[in-house]
Amino acid sequence: MMDNEKEVLVEIRDLDVRYKTRLGPVSAVDDVSFDIFQGEILGLVGESGCGKSTMGKALMRLLPPATDIHGKVIFDGADVLTFSEDQLRDFRGRRISMIFQDPMTSLNPVQRIDNHLVETIQVHEPDTKETDALSRIRGLVERLGIQKERIEDFPHQLSGGMRQRVMISLGLVLNPSLIIADEATTSLDVIVEAKFLDELREILDEFGVSILVITHNIALVAELADRIAVMYAGRIAELGSIYSVFDNPLHPYTKGLLQSVPSIKLDEREVLYKMPGEPPNLTHPPPGCRFHPRCPEVMPICSNHTPSLLHVTSKQMVNCWLYQDHPEKDQPTIEVAT
């Protein structure tokens, strides 16, 4: 199997995240299991509010202290969820880093750019002298296309694209194994975004790091990622290689998502599919499959029993009763040809 050719970097098993709010617990991630491979780009897509960011933060344990987290996040053999504060600090930034959505607000406004970088190095390597740290970042910064003179600037003096490069350099400066890019390009304009994506891919190849690209923009994943995970209401609906999922989407939600992406061919002017309904309120998620109230292919069983994320081919997993057997099910289970 192709999957087995790659080494697993992160194993996520039975992950549950429940925010505590005054209105009751919010089940933002529910029973999620998947792997992230070394050197791959995994795209995590879904409508906003479906738990993608929570998922990303859970990997770094950046959630509010009161949040309930269960399950396992095995990174290089160790379970992140059992780390002590000190282990966590060491882990964050050095093994795994995150590029945030808004480069405007994700840099300390009163800290110079070089200081951000030097501080990040010194946090993890306290013995590094400032001059050494500075010389270390020089190459990286140049590689990312940030002019040398600009690194003594304050964040507000840089353009949005430049700031996002700074964010990437901050993510890369310690050579982590995984970078989580949460809506990292959402705030950029289209041209900058395209350029940025090209560079991002090049860099990743150079550095050999894995990336979890979190986005609501499925087109971006198509362009960038090796694999895609489609998330709906706290669960993974479908997971597989870009080619298999885009060629043959199995989950009704994935199908809907793909249909609602506009095609580039202007002359066709097709009427875009619009998925009915809204994502559920996660304080009170629907029973059974969380997608069933919106599902065009809904079956009686869907509202009573929860399906699991199972392989249907070696490259594709889906979380839907259409492809799974159950004693209470009337319709035949669909077999997918490999």
Binding site: D90, F91, R92, F100, D102, L107, N108, Q111, M167, L170
Partner: peptide
């Protein structure tokens, strides 16, 4: 603010985040 979460994600100590990053902005 986001830059505090971002700093936390880089492994910066909570104490440093409060007394250097947050405070230096609050000082203004």
């Amino acid at each position: 603010e986001d830059y505090i979460t971002a700093g936390r994600a880089r492994g910066i100590r909570e104490r440093v985040l409060v007394y250097r990053h947050a405070l230096s902005n609050a000082l203004i």
